[in-house]
Computed example of a mutant assay.
Amino acid sequence: MDNTKVLIVGTGAIGSFYGGKLDCAGAQVSTLCRSDYNHIKKSGISVKSVMGDFHFMPYEVINKIEDYSSIPDYILVTTKVLPGIDIQKIIEPKVGKNTAIVLIQNGIDIEKPVREAFPNNEIISGLAFICVSRTSLGEIYHQDYGRLIIGNYPNGLSPKVKYLQSLFIKSEVDCTVDDNIVNSRWKKMIWNAPFNPISVIGGGVDTKTILENSEAKNLVINVMKEVLEIANKSGYNLPETLIQKNIEDTLNMKPYKTSMLLDYENNRPLEVEVILGNAVKIARDLDLSVPNLKALYSLLLLLDKNNI
């Protein structure tokens, strides 16, 4: 076994899948669980995956972070980014001087609060390109993809980033590194900003249904154009070809219910601010007109408020 200690904070679909993969690579992986605590402590996590099914029994299963018996080399944060979740407060008891904090989460501008809370710790930002969901207690269904991109925030590539990459690659996860990870976050926003909200506002539709409707497809493209403009005005150089590539990639993948739609259907809070709100605020600061993003943002705020 590798002596690398990893603590997963947010043992839902993403945390369970990638935590399980790090366990497969030999790392000592522990999990902070809430609703699944009793089940996972007794039976572990089962993953049905297109890459091959596997079972993962965490080294330690805890429901309070203070109960973790060590200080981890990596804390992998895979929770939703929501106003009611104070990640800095949750992880603080187990952040040692050499602990790298890895944020595998959606959205833009998510790293700043963690950087402010832990100015002397290494922050690794991560993007997951994966279709995965939790089907029941301790049961994960990995439907498609699985690629990761990681890099230091705000930029750079440290030995800890490269070692984490090596662990993922060892477990057959396609993991690449990027020394300008914020640029990659904007690239992912090109997909997230239209598909997540439209899947909810459109009445519970999957990606295939969205793109088969010509008006919905035009809305997707217009939102993508607005995200591209914000990113480029912010100093990032994203080519317009990314729009067509995202459309083609989505048409080629299996029909998929977005993570936001799954949250909505299960009456969970939505990641409205980090997927739409932050982008709208940045556009406002840059004096950019983003009518499609603003409309989706306004409607999603209403739906989110009335769904909880």
Results as ranks from 00 to 15, higher is better:
145 Y>S: 10
180 N>K: 15
140 I>E: 09
8 I>W: 03
180 N>C: 13
250 T>K: 01
77 V>D: 06
277 G>C: 03
273 E>S: 09
2 D>S: 14
159 P>Q: 15
187 K>R: 13
117 A>V: 13
211 L>H: 12
199 S>Y: 05
118 F>S: 06
238 L>H: 08
60 E>Q: 15
213 N>M: 09
11 T>C: 14
121 N>A: 09
243 I>H: 08
232 N>C: 12
247 I>H: 07
102 V>K: 10
85 I>R: 04
297 Y>K: 07
9 V>R: 00
77 V>I: 14
199 S>L: 03
285 D>I: 02
216 A>G: 05
179 D>L: 03
26 G>V: 08
297 Y>E: 08
254 K>G: 03
171 S>M: 05
293 L>W: 09
39 H>I: 02
147 R>Y: 09
248 E>H: 12
249 D>M: 14
166 S>D: 11
161 V>E: 00
62 I>A: 06
267 N>W: 00
109 D>S: 13
31 T>G: 07
105 Q>N: 11
34 R>L: 12
23 D>T: 10
51 M>G: 10
119 P>Y: 08
283 A>S: 14
99 T>V: 11
192 N>Q: 04
128 A>H: 07
33 C>R: 01
129 F>P: 02
140 I>W: 11
275 I>R: 05
177 V>L: 11
83 P>V: 08
146 G>Q: 10
89 K>L: 08
268 R>N: 12
307 N>M: 10
146 G>I: 11
100 A>L: 02
251 L>M: 13
138 G>P: 06
141 Y>A: 13
5 K>L: 13
73 D>V: 13
266 N>D: 09
246 N>G: 01
189 M>Q: 12
36 D>Y: 03
68 Y>C: 10
243 I>K: 07
56 F>E: 10
168 F>N: 01
138 G>T: 06
230 I>Q: 04
58 P>K: 04
180 N>E: 15
181 I>H: 09
87 I>C: 10
270 L>V: 12
178 D>P: 04
175 C>K: 11
39 H>L: 02
